[in-house]
Design a protein around this nucleic acid. Structure first.
Lengths: 201, 201
DNA sequence: CCTACCGATCGGTAGG
DNA sequence: CCTACCGATCGGTAGG
């Protein structure tokens, strides 16, 4: 039912967004001008405004992509069956999967500073996700399956700090499959670095 | 031997740098104008150029502060006595100390994208530090004191990803002392999350 | 001659 | 999707 295109094929909204996210990640949001984006797309600056209402709208769409995925992850984990330990382990693995599958959008989210209403709203949504991740760690600690000698809030920050750090170096098409990467992260996080550490309780 | 000041007391280079680093961290380097910096200092924009040659010089000084500390840390660790395990454990603890003591400068460093020669040079120096950290992990794995079932390069990225993630939430004057924080990080990194995991090999 | 600034404005570029 | 622009603001510098 889509109308046949007339004129030059050009770009659709999704292509503009994808290129924008890439440039935002490479040079920073403020460090990327709409002229840079136009040049990367091979069009003039004004042409971009045919597809999107403005620069900040591109940022908002990218942040929503990442936050929608993370929201879905913690919501599913909160209502999943099994022990708190199993749900925590699943959410760590799921977080790795989200970071790998949506790396550019998640990278942008993790760099948001709150410079605008769009960024402040993203920070608010992110804090909610972080709070629900901390709830899972707290439940696992209360259950006795995760160490309780450290503040669960602190443990949560360290664990998901580790997961989030993946965006700094992981690139799609690397040697590691997402599954192998998730295995490595959960092993290091739950069992630690010591040689011969057991894979399970 | 310093001459008595005449005219308004004003600000020295160090004060301008400290305020600049704070603003760069809060709003991003490109998101901070020299006008913003001037307003934060309570002077005019032109007055800043009496103290510093330009905006990028402020960034370069901040990045040098962080990189000098990290260079000193890995250099000391590389020539320290003891097993590779002991040196790795010391460098993890030392990295926490550096991040806490130089949090604003290190935060800036971790966000550098390579947008300019100054940033590219900082990235180059940072890659050298990262390589020497990976060397330590490799030596500990070869020694048999750290798990060798995972690529040392990957383990290094995860460990120092965890440490680096501190800058995202740690603020000076929090509840945790630097020592307690370093304890918590080394415990989680080396022993993992499992309840009752031993504190040592 | 100095340090420590100010009011005004430079040439370019930002998002739109 | 382009040429031709705008109000404003950028980093940096002039004379005093």
């Amino acid at each position: 039912m889509t109308q046949p295109r007339r004129g030059r094929p050009g770009h659709d909204q999704a292509a503009v967004l994808q290129t924008a996210i890439d440039l935002f990640n490479r040079h920073g949001y403020e460090g990327t001008s709409m002229g840079d984006l136009a040049a990367a797309l091979g069009v003039t600056k004004a042409a971009i405004y045919h597809h999107v209402p403005g620069k900040e709208h591109l940022l908002a769409q990218a942040l929503d992509e990442a936050l929608d995925e993370l929201d879905a992850l913690v919501t599913a984990a909160a209502s999943a069956p099994g022990t708190a330990y199993e749900r925590l382990r699943a959410v760590v693995r799921g977080a790795v999967d989200v970071l790998v599958a949506h790396q550019p959008a998640v990278t942008l989210l993790l760099r948001v500073r709150g410079n605008s209403p769009v960024e402040l709203d993203a920070l608010r949504r992110r804090r909610e996700v972080d709070a629900r991740l901390a709830d899972l760690v707290r439940a696992a600690a209360a259950e006795g399956s995760v160490r309780a000698d450290l503040d669960p809030e602190l443990v949560s920050r360290l664990v998901f700090g580790t997961v989030n750090s993946l965006v700094e170096w992981h690139r799609p098409g690397g040697e590691l499959t997402p599954d192998a990467l998730a295995d490595a992260v959960t092993t290091v996080v739950f069992d630690g670095l010591h040689a011969g550490a057991g894979p399970e309780l």
